[in-house]
Computed example of a mutant assay.
Amino acid sequence: MALVELGRFNRNEAHILIGRLDSEGVVAIPFDGEASIGDGSYLFIAVRVLVDEDDLATAKAIVESAA
């Protein structure tokens, strides 16, 4: 399993997207969401959403269909 970046999203969008991907059977993992929680700027740092490289095309199609 090799993880690849699907995209960078604000904190709320990232978690909504992860839920949507999960409902479609695509495992997604958030990264960097807690990067600056200590100094209070965590809402300004984009969350990277990572998926298995084998699921990338499916995940991109799900993102595009939601736009």
Rank of each mutant, 00 (worst) to 15 (best):
A57Q: 08
S36G: 08
G38S: 13
Y42N: 09
L50R: 14
E34K: 11
D39E: 12
V27T: 11
A14V: 03
S23L: 14
V4Q: 06
I29P: 01
L17H: 04
M1L: 06
S65V: 04
G33A: 15
H15M: 15
F9M: 11
R8H: 03
G33D: 15
R20L: 11
K60G: 00
S23G: 10
A57P: 00
I37V: 15
D22H: 09
F9C: 09
L3D: 09
D54G: 03
E53Q: 08
L17G: 06
G19R: 08
A66F: 04
V26T: 10
E34A: 14
I62M: 04
A61M: 04
V26D: 00
A35C: 10
E24V: 10
G7W: 07
D54F: 02
R20S: 04
L50P: 00
A14M: 05
I29A: 13
D52E: 09
D22S: 14
E13S: 10
F31H: 14
H15S: 02
V63H: 06
A66K: 05
L43F: 07
V4F: 03
G33M: 08
H15L: 13
L43V: 11
F44T: 10
V51F: 01
G19C: 03
D22T: 08
F31A: 15
L3S: 09
A59R: 01
V26Y: 03
S41Y: 11
E64N: 08
E64C: 08
E5N: 10
